[in-house]
Design a protein around this nucleic acid. Structure first.
Length: 365
DNA sequence: AATACGGGGGT
DNA sequence: ACCCCAGTATT
């Protein structure tokens, strides 16, 4: 018997009294667990909640999701970020329909093969929906276990990951593993916070090594973040006959599958105008005239920042070819809301349409 | 082992 | 400004 057995019952008691009423807790179907877990990857509960409700309204079951066009799924995901999640979820629904008769599998090896489902999400689906004893290791659980067992090695080392998975499996009870996993996550979300361990209110305080040592706020240890580069990016608002040209990004990579105003990153020694002309020619094989600057938007992604410089432009010459884009479309301003755009482009659209119509701009060379 | 991948909210 | 979030896939 170790000196500090894990206080499972204390955690369960605390959870029973303090659990939040969240939409995905009212529905433990594998599909609901799946959707919510994907949405909650690297995403706060508060941010995911509204998206989850709308998503379940639009796509109430695997069949509905599999049947829906990807555009509609991306539109439902717009603003939530990490758009590959939406693509994978959609692909996953089609795979479940095709390979599993529309039923989400209840075994680890099959779950892990569904795109977007990794070890932790598989553990969530297995424990929460199927009541099978598989651990979850998300940011909350990592923090709680790092502190309880006083794990001082940096979180992003593979050895640390192995240790944490081992602990998560070791503390997992055979009975009701799902609610136990939830309780562990909820503790990390409500009490054992990154900058405030809340030890006085914590049901695990008795055996927690970090509390005993008094260094809970130092754990878990993370390597220092790298500096984030900044780029200047241009985008063209090309108008013709009351319509605007929008292009669709490739399915892979940043903002995959989303629509945007075409453009790209400024190169060293290049003017913004030259950058825009070059990018448009490279991606669409047409020549444009760059007119008045419109809006500048500053925006932060996860690993770089940009200033987006937009310009009103005119299509001068050539026929559009889909070189660096997946698709393109000429749309009326009011139709822009039917498409999924990145946040930065959304800001441009807001300004573009805020008087109910496009502001007049002289069209000159 | 390191990096790509969004957006929002707290401090 | 910096940190972090119910992580996964790719390199």
């Amino acid at each position: 018997m170790p000196p500090h057995p894990f206080p499972t019952e204390k955690l369960r008691d605390w959870f029973r009294k303090n659990k939040r009423d969240l939409p995905w807790r009212r529905d433990r179907r594998p599909y609901s667990v799946w959707v919510s877990e994907i949405m909650l990857q690297q995403t706060r509960v508060d941010q995911a909640e509204g998206y989850y409700r709308r998503f379940m309204e639009l796509f109430p079951d695997v069949g509905a999701l599999a049947q829906a066009p990807l555009d509609q799924v991306l539109k439902a995901w717009e603003g939530l970020g990490y758009y590959r999640r939406a693509l994978h979820l959609h692909q996953g629904a089609r795979l479940v329909r095709q390979d599993h008769g529309g039923e989400i599998p209840s075994d680890y090896n099959r779950l892990i093969q569904i795109p977007g489902i990794g070890r932790s999400t598989a553990g969530a689906i297995l424990s929460l929906a199927f009541n099978r004893p598989f651990p979850i290791l998300d940011g909350n659980v990592k923090r709680v276990l790092s502190r309880f067992y006083h794990i001082t090695r940096p979180l992003d080392q593979s050895e640390t990951g192995k240790t944490l998975w081992q602990k998560a499996a070791a503390v997992l009870p055979e009975k009701k593993p799902g609610s136990f996993n939830e309780a562990l996550m909820e503790l990390g979300a409500l009490i054992c916070l990154p900058k405030d361990p809340g030890c006085a209110r914590c049901p695990l305080r008795k055996g927690c090594q970090a509390r005993i040592k008094g260094d809970a706020t130092e754990l878990p240890v993370k390597k220092p973040a790298k500096k984030i580069p900044h780029f200047d990016v241009t985008a063209a608002v090309i108008r013709k006959a009351g319509k605007i040209l929008i292009t669709r990004r490739p399915e892979k990579g940043l903002l995959g599958g989303l629509w945007e105003f075409p453009g790209g990153k400024q190169q060293p020694g290049e003017t913004l105008e030259a950058c825009l002309k070059r990018e448009i020619t490279e991606e669409l094989a047409i020549e444009i005239t760059v007119g008045e600057p419109f809006l500048q938007v500053r925006h932060a992604y996860s690993h770089f920042k940009i200033t987006l410089h937009t310009f009103f432009c005119r299509h001068r010459k050539g026929r559009i070819q889909k070189i660096g884009i997946q698709d393109y479309r000429w749309v009326k301003p009011e139709e822009l809301n039917h498409y999924a755009f990145p946040r930065a482009d959304r800001r441009v659209i807001e300004r573009l349409t805020e008087h109910g119509h496009l502001p007049f701009r002289p069209q000159r060379g």
